[in-house]
Design a protein around this nucleic acid. Structure first.
Lengths: 143, 143
DNA sequence: CTGTATCCCCAACGATACTG
DNA sequence: CAGTATCGTTGGGGATACAG
């Protein structure tokens, strides 16, 4: 993107382009915002559940799959890999027959528990009110 | 879904079907889990930003659009409507010329601020470590 | 047992144009 | 000023089959 060199009017390239630039900049800012990065992690559908499932100790893969009855293998593996990649849990392979893999929270991952707890507490205390609003709102215009 | 009444072997319809049933049940459970409902709300890309933008008082639509430089009109409106629907903010129309609309947090919505603050604090304290892990992990296998 | 590989769908998000 | 309408892209997430 080059600035207009000549002193020409150039009525175009103003509003829309400025918008685009602002967007790009803001997006870059958002991509670096720690809070948003965290929300993207824990917002993943299975992350909070996996972390909670590991709260009281290591679990095997099949163990997790049973406890999180709704998860597909693909998503469970993907979630675990992402969390491992971020240093939130460890993956330990025991090369026996049959193979055995244990997952456990790291201290960093365990540090997430109080935060998840806070989220859960807020949710249990206030979500009913939120849902009541939602239904009232929908009901009023369902007609 | 009926349980197998007879003591018959019925090799088919077992594993896969049981899986499906478990999934459906678990999904239903998740749909009702307050913590997940909350995560779905605040996980929306613009929700936390909008709530924060309203932290210190009401704002007009165009005001919000300026402060959240990256948001499209569609997403801003959609986010605001969702939050209004959930009783987290109010929408006040002043029928003047030109039209004017103010958005403000309700007490319920303001109650979200401490939680968002907690998320932000955790993120600022620990996300650098998470990102360091991530890069180390990626770098190790980037070859 | 612990995954990987593949295909597919859909909802989120964005871009653009138009309206009261 | 404050939206609505419409279209297109993208990636999250699930189903299924296969592999070490």
């Amino acid at each position: 993107m080059r600035t207009a060199r000549r002193g020409e009017p150039m009525a175009t390239t103003t509003a829309a382009q400025r918008r685009s630039a602002a967007r790009a900049g803001y997006d870059a800012y958002l991509a670096e915002c720690p809070a948003r990065q965290l929300l993207e992690r824990i917002g993943d559908k299975w992350v909070s559940l996996v972390v909670n499932a590991l709260a009281d100790g290591p679990r095997r893969y099949s163990d997790l799959r049973r406890r999180l009855a709704g998860v597909s293998e693909k998503m469970l593996t993907q979630t675990l890999r992402n969390l491992e990649r971020d240093g939130l849990l460890t993956r330990t392979v025991t090369a026996s027959v049959p193979a055995r893999v244990d997952y456990a929270l790291t201290p960093l991952g365990a540090g997430l528990l109080p935060l998840l707890r806070a989220i859960k507490d807020w949710a249990e205390e206030h979500m009913p009110e939120v849902l009541a609003h939602r239904e009232a709102h929908d009901g009023a215009r369902a007609d």
